[in-house]
Simulated assay, not measured.
Amino acid sequence: MNLMNETPSPPSSEVIEVSLSDIFGFFKRNWLILFFAGLLSGAAGYGISHLIAPQFEATAKILPEFGSGTGAGGLSDLASLAGFSLGKSSSDALRPDLYPSILSSKTFLMQVLSTPFPLQNGEKIVLASYLDEEAQPLSPQQLAQGDTLITLSKEQERVMKDVAARITASMDKMSGVISIRAEMPDPTLAAACATYTLSYLKTFVGEYRGGKKAEKVAFLRTQVNEAKGKYQRTEVALNAYRDRNRSAFTNMAQVEEQRLQNDYLQAQTLYGELTRQLEAARLQALEEAPVLKVLEPPMIPNWKSKPKRSLYALGFAILGGFLVLIVLLFVKEKIHHKFG
C-alpha cells in the first residue's frame, strides 16, 4: 500500500537547471561571435535593400462636409425671401466613412488601370502594363462592363490587386479627415495617381448626391423654355388681335379676345410657376451639394518611402544573431550530452 501511494521522482538526467550565472557566462564566452554574426547579417540586409526597387509615396488629405441649409444667411433663407421653400434636406447623403470603400471598388481600379499617367522623365504610361509587363491594358469593352459581370484576365486581376494595395484611403474617426495614399515606383506617378484619386472621389460623391437633383433641374429648365415660348406666342396673338379689332364691338370679337386673354393668363401663370420651381431646384441642389475641402494637396515626393534600409539592416542583424544563438545552444547541448 505504501508503494502505491509514492510517486516516482523523475530521473536526475531529465532535470536541467540553468542559473543566471550560467546565462551570463554563456554570453561572456560567445559575445564576440554573436556581435560579428549580427554585424555581418545587418550588412547583408543593408546590401539586399539596394536590390529592392524604391517606392515613392504621395498623400492627400480632405475634409468632407455637407451643407445643412439651416445656418443663418444660408441658401434656404435666400429662398424664403424669394417666396418659396426648399423643403427638408434629403437624407441620402453618402457617409464619409464609405469613401475608402469607393476607392477600393473594382470600378475605380479599372479606371485607374486604363488612365495614362506621367512619369518623372515626361513619358506617359498606363499602369496595367507599367506595373506588370504581362498584363494587357483594359479594352474599351472591359471598361464598358460597368455594373455587369466583370471579366478580366489573370494578369489584369493580379495587377488590379497590386494597385488596390498601392492606392488606399483611410478615415480618422476623431477628426473626420480622409487620407489618400498612393505609392508607386516613380515620384511623379505617385503624385499623379493621388491627384486622380482625389478628383475621382469628388466626381463620384457629387454625382451620387446631386444626380437626381441635376436631372430635375434639367427637366424644369426644358419645361420653362417651352412655357416661355408659349407665353410669348399667346402674348403676341392677343396684342395682334387687339390691334386688328380696335373698333370691333361685336359679341364674337369680345368672345375671341376673352379666349386669347385666358390663354395668355394661363401661359403667364404656368411660366411663372415653372420659373419659381426651377430656381428652387437650383438653390436646393447648391444647398445640398457635398463639399470636399482639400486640406493637403498631393505633392511629388523627393524621398523614397521604401525600402527603409535601416530597418532591413536591423531586422537582418536580429535574425542573424538569433540564428547563431540557436546554433551555439544546440552545439553546446550536443557537446554536453556527449562528454558531460
Rank of each mutant, 00 (worst) to 15 (best):
L51P: 08
G73W: 06
I52G: 14
L40Q: 12
T70W: 05
S41P: 04
G38S: 07
A53K: 08
A82W: 05
G38V: 00
A58R: 00
S49V: 06
Y46N: 09
G47A: 15
G38N: 06
T59Q: 13
G67W: 02
H50V: 13
G38Y: 01
G71R: 14
L51V: 15
L78Q: 12
E65D: 14
I48D: 05
G42Q: 03
A58T: 04
L39R: 01
K61R: 14
K61P: 04
L51T: 12
A37L: 02
P54D: 06
S68W: 14
I62H: 00
S41G: 09
A79E: 02
L75C: 01
G69C: 04
D77I: 04
G45M: 10
T59S: 13
S41T: 06
I62L: 10
L51Q: 14
F56S: 02
S80Y: 08
A72H: 08
G69Y: 01
H50M: 14
A43S: 10
A72M: 14
G38Q: 02
G47K: 12
G69R: 01
S68C: 05
F66E: 13
G71Q: 14
A72D: 14
S76M: 05
I52Q: 13
A37I: 03
A58H: 00
S76W: 01
S68P: 09
P64Q: 03
I62P: 01
I48T: 09
A72E: 11
G67T: 06
G45W: 01
G71A: 14
G38M: 06
G73K: 06
L81N: 15
G69V: 04
T59V: 12
S80E: 15
L75V: 04
S80N: 13
L81S: 15
T70Q: 08
I62K: 03
A79H: 01
